[in-house]
Design a binder for these strands. Structure first.
Lengths: 119, 119
DNA sequence: CGCATAGTTAGCCGATGGGGTAAGTTTCAA
DNA sequence: TTGAAACTTACCCCATCGGCTAACTATGCG
C-alpha cells in the first residue's frame, strides 16, 4: 500500500523531526536558538542536567537536521537550520485542511439530505 | 527558570502529542481517520503487524488525546478528536514567526549598518 | 609552563518503545 | 448452541532513550 511504502521510505524526514520535537529539553533548545546561535554551554546552562546528557539532545537535534553546529577553538556553536521545521508544519496543515474539507463535505451532505426531506 | 518550569509542568500537551506523531504507523492512522471514523480492524488491515502490536499505537493515540474510541458490540470505532493537533501546529507556527522576526531584525540591523558606513 | 574552560568519549543504569506470541473474552450469527 | 469475528490481556524480547559518572582531549589565558 502507498502509505506503508511511504512509511518505510528511508527519506522520510518526519519521524526524526517529530522525535526531535517530542522532548521538552529539545524544544527549549530550539526556542533558545530562535533568537540566534549559541554555544553548547550557554544552551545547557538553564537545564539542570550533566553536560554529557545535554549533549545527547544537541546531537539528536543535529541528526534530525534541526540544527547545525560548528566548532571554533573550544567552542561549539549551535544554530537553527532555516526551514528545518517546515515538513512538520506542512504535514500538520495538510491534515487540518483534509479534516476541514471532510467537515465541509459532511455539511454539504446534511444540506442535501435536508433538501430531500423538504421535497 | 521559566522554561524549565514549563517543561516539568504536567499539563504540557506537546510532549505526548509530538510523541504520538513521531511514528509512521500512527501518522498513517491519523491520515486514514481524516476521511472519517473507522473500526480498529479496518485501520489495522494495511499494516503488516499483529493486532496487539497495532492496538498499542491506537492506545497511544488515544492517551495523547489525538483520537477517541467507542465500542459498539464487538467493534471499537476510532475517530479523530477535532483540534487535537492544534497545539503542535501552534507551537511550530509561533517558532516560525519568531524565526522570521529575527531575520527581519537582522535585515534591519544590516540596513542601519550600511547607512552608517555611507555617512 | 600550568591551569581553567569547553567539549568529548566511554560505559552504566532503569524506563520506555515497538515488535512478537499465546490465550482469554465478548459479541454476533448460523 | 456452537463457532467465528473482533478485540483484549498478559507476557516476552531487544533496542533505544534519557539520565548519570569518570576520565579524557583540546584550547585559551596568565
Amino acid at each position: 500500500m502507498l502509505l506503508i511504502h511511504m512509511a518505510n521510505n528511508q527519506h522520510d524526514p518526519l519521524t526524526p523531526l517529530f522525535t526531535a520535537l517530542a522532548d521538552p529539553t529539545r524544544r527549549a533548545v530550539i526556542d533558545a536558538l530562535l533568537d540566534g546561535p549559541l554555544p553548547v554551554s550557554a544552551l545547557a546552562e538553564p537545564h539542570d542536567m550533566a553536560l554529557p546528557s545535554f549533549l545527547k539532545h544537541v546531537d539528536k537535534l543535529e541528526a534530525a537536521g534541526v540544527i547545525t553546529t560548528r566548532k571554533e577553538g573550544r567552542v561549539r556553536t549551535c544554530q537553527l537550520c532555516a526551514g528545518a521545521l517546515g515538513p512538520a508544519e506542512t504535514w500538520l496543515s495538510r491534515a487540518r485542511d483534509r479534516w476541514s474539507g471532510k467537515l465541509d463535505r459532511l455539511a454539504a451532505h446534511l444540506d442535501a439530505t435536508t433538501q430531500e426531506k423538504k421535497q
